[in-house]
Computed example of a mutant assay.
Amino acid sequence: MSIELIPARFAHRISGYPADGYASGEDWLAELPTLLGDLLREWELEPIGPTMTGACSVALPVRLLGAGRDAAGVSGEGVLKISWPHPEAATESLALQTWNGHGAVRLLRADPSRFAMLLERLHARDLMGVDVDEACGVIGDLLGVLRRPPHPRVPRLVDYAERQARELHDAPPVLPRRYLDQASALARELVARPPAEDRLLHTDLHYENVLGAYRSPWLAIDPKPMAGDPAFEVAPALWNRADELGSGSQVRWSLRRRLEIICERAGVDEGRARAWTIVREADNAVDAAESAQSAGDDASREWAHDRISLAVTIIKAMND
């Protein structure tokens, strides 16, 4: 296996990841060439393009050569995705299996023990270049299609909320104290007043996690699955493409416009979506501050400052 299948920038970034329940980034990276070679051989795959990377995974375009070729459609092509082992990636294949290609990329084969999946091949285009109102409509429609009963083995949103209620209450004042206290109280309230039914949640459906497809205009990729309240799903479409929010009073209008479109198309309660967004943005701000403190460099501190400022902006807009 040639090391060129692992882009150098990806290798440099992930080598610094500490272990999160599994192998560290450095240890996993040392095994990745062998893992790639084993999967290509065992699953009878031929690389046909350069490796793509995400924050924690590599995705290699492949041609299926064996008996499973028909599952990939007319092209006989797919994508071999291997993720650095961490809790958020542990149940991705279960969610894709549950959706079975309805609104999401189709799972052709999986080996959860090796955090490996063979996926149908999609187009490279995403929603980043689509008018934001139209893109929010696409996201809202997909959230409606993806609304399925949850797989019993995915994490529960209620556990996240209970944890955040405690952690945000005790967090240092990286945000104005009133916002941290509000987020903590909302997390408790949302657990105390649950929706009528839990659903399988993507939890990270933003503009780059929606790709064009051969069999459908748009499909979701890269879920971080949970089971719980569909109103939790809206927030990523608010904090992404933040440079397009405008300035001054236009920012609030833009954020509420996105929220309104998604909630209407997905059939989600706007009040609960605003409340979950406040919780998630407070969590994002605390995470940003902790990451910058751990990194200890000027670039990380500058990024954290900007991310916390965005969190304050979004929380204000959800409150007004």
Rank of each mutant, 00 (worst) to 15 (best):
E197F: 14
R121M: 07
T98H: 02
W218H: 07
D38I: 10
L310T: 00
G144I: 08
E92F: 04
I82Q: 04
A135H: 08
A242Q: 12
F10Y: 13
R156K: 14
A317T: 02
R280I: 15
R121F: 08
G101W: 09
R114E: 15
S309F: 11
A220R: 01
R193N: 13
L211I: 07
I314V: 15
P152D: 01
G271S: 02
A183R: 02
L157F: 06
A89L: 10
V191A: 13
P194D: 08
G66K: 12
I278H: 00
D204Q: 08
Q250H: 04
H86Q: 08
A235H: 11
S300Y: 06
S2L: 03
D20Y: 02
V145I: 03
R13F: 05
S254N: 07
A237V: 05
M318R: 13
R252Q: 06
R272C: 14
H206R: 11
R258Q: 00
P236E: 11
L32C: 06
D111N: 02
A185W: 05
L107D: 10
A275W: 13
P194I: 04
R63D: 11
D229H: 07
P194K: 06
P61R: 12
S113W: 08
A192T: 04
A19S: 12
S83I: 03
R178E: 15
Y207W: 10
A8N: 14
P85M: 03
E189D: 13
D133G: 14
T91Y: 09
P236Q: 11
Q250R: 06
D38V: 10
V312M: 07
W218Q: 03
S24W: 01
S15D: 10
D27R: 06
N319L: 12
D170V: 13
D204Y: 10
V210W: 14
V74N: 00
I262Y: 11
L80H: 13
R199M: 12
D141S: 10
L29G: 05
Q97C: 10
T91P: 00
P155C: 04
A266T: 08
V279P: 07
V158F: 12
I262V: 14
P85T: 05
S15V: 06
A110F: 01
R193G: 11
L127N: 14
R147C: 08
R148G: 09
V105P: 01
P195G: 01
Q250S: 03
W253H: 01
L127R: 13
E162G: 09
L310Y: 03
L65Y: 07
G54A: 13
P150V: 00
T51Y: 06
E88L: 03
V58N: 11
P149R: 15
R163F: 07
R106T: 07
V174E: 14
P195K: 01
S300E: 05
L200D: 02
P85F: 04
L32Y: 04
P7D: 14
A55S: 13
P47Q: 10
F232V: 12
S300N: 05
R178N: 15
D243W: 11
L211F: 09
A110G: 00
